[in-house]
Amino acid sequence: MGLLDYFRSSQPKGSANVAKERLQILVAHDRAARDRPSYLPKLQQEIIDVIRKYVDVDMNAVSVNYEQEDAHEVLELNIVLPEAAQQRLAP
């Protein structure tokens, strides 16, 4: 550590902070994915297939979120219909 570094040492620190932040986000994301039931992707696919019978939606229009809270699990389905959807709905 040279003279300059000595006086600089009170300044914000190096790359470790960045590493920690990145890891915290990543690990939280990985853990959430790990706890999900394994049927979720298939469920999502089948829901999309059913919706597609009536409305022309793409894969990204359906999101399936699974959250675990202390005593219960929440399965959240979010389907975004395209703007022209109403015209195509079955009578």
Partner: peptide
Amino acid sequence: VDNGDMLSVED
């Protein structure tokens, strides 16, 4: 770690 270039034990 002191130099801020390595994750600490606590991190």
